[in-house]
């Protein structure tokens, strides 16, 4: 029969590679993204292992080393200098990294979960539920998040848990809006209609067809948002309504250092640089992720060295 002729010319596909392998080669194609990924991996390891190794140096007061300038003479702990109480800045940045990351991860995780769930409901169900959820979101979005956070922290009192809650609440709308929009878009795709017409249950439609489409976008936003949360948290801590002593994050370290800025710039400089590098790495990785997960743009990364 004639129609068999067509089926013999199945497109030649690239050799099957594992997903991880493909991701690695795509990462290799964008050097900025690769360095960003390496930096973040290093940071993650530091957060997990660092405080165990040199945690003591971060709290031991040493008046001899007060505001010691960065130098190689006093051993590696004082490479970045000492703070106003003579504690090693390097050690404090490592311990501060743990708190900074812990606050940000908890806040982002909480807002992703809550936002995605509500967005899924709003996008999938539509109707009144969706309207109510969206109106509340619009309300939260239409006021500066920093001011909302300040007011709530003022009323509830600053503490780590309140800080996480406030950060999460101000970020939820981002995920909610995106998830809802993406779910609505996915829902209108023909293969979802096809699944419903075949009799698929809601659970099957959501978990088999919609979530796999929405997830990459959510991950990308989470990466960008991680950076935004770190910056907001450090801003709040800088204003004195975030993390309270004796706990500290990079943001509160910059705030402390501000008082000594004229005589000892390194107190503020290093923790701020740490924030910038972390946020930058996350943003670079997110923009790479956006290209890598978009089939229409992916050739920019693949082009040139995949001629097999």
């Amino acid at each position: 029969m004639t129609y068999l002729t067509e089926s013999t010319k199945v497109m030649k596909s690239a050799p099957q590679r594992s997903r991880f392998g493909t991701a690695l080669s795509l990462l290799w194609a964008d050097k900025f993204a690769m360095f960003a990924a390496l930096f973040l991996i290093l940071l993650a390891i530091t957060c997990m292992v660092g405080p165990l190794l040199i945690g003591k140096a971060a709290s031991g007061i040493n008046f001899a080393g007060r505001n010691a300038p960065p130098s190689f003479d006093k051993g590696f702990l004082y490479i970045l200098g000492g703070d106003n109480l003579g504690r090693s800045l390097l050690a404090r940045i490592i311990v501060g990294a743990q708190t900074t990351m812990a606050v940000a991860i908890t806040a982002v995780a909480a807002s992703v979960i809550v936002g995605a769930l509500l967005g899924l409901v709003a996008g999938y169900r539509g109707g009144l539920v969706s309207d109510v959820i969206m109106r509340v979101t619009d309300m939260i979005m239409s006021f500066p998040s920093m001011l909302t956070a300040l007011v709530v922290l003022y009323v509830l009192g600053p503490s780590v848990s309140n800080l996480v809650i406030v950060l999460a609440i101000t970020r939820i709308p981002v995920y909610l809006r995106t998830t809802r929009a993406e779910v609505m878009e996915a829902r209108s795709r023909v293969f979802v209609t096809a699944a419903i017409a075949m009799g698929a249950s809601h659970a099957r439609v959501i978990f088999k067809h919609i979530l796999p489409i929405v997830l990459p976008t959510l991950l990308t936003i989470a990466a960008v948002d991680f950076a935004a949360v770190i910056i907001t948290e450090s801003g709040l801590s800088f204003l004195g309504l975030g993390i309270q002593a004796p706990d500290f994050t990079w943001g509160s370290m910059v705030a402390t250092g501000r008082n000594y800025i004229a005589s000892a710039w390194w107190l503020s400089f290093w923790p701020g640089l740490a924030i910038t590098l972390t946020a930058l790495s996350l943003n670079i990785l997110a923009s790479w992720l956006r290209i890598a997960t978009d089939p229409q743009q992916r050739w920019r990364l693949e082009g040139g060295h995949n001629h097999d």
Partner: peptide
């Protein structure tokens, strides 16, 4: 009923889940 009646859609690109 959904077992007895099936559908084939216009757009062969959109009607198949690209991730399956």
């Amino acid at each position: 009923f959904r077992r007895d009646v099936q559908m084939v859609f216009q757009d062969p690109y959109g009607s198949l889940n690209p991730k399956m």
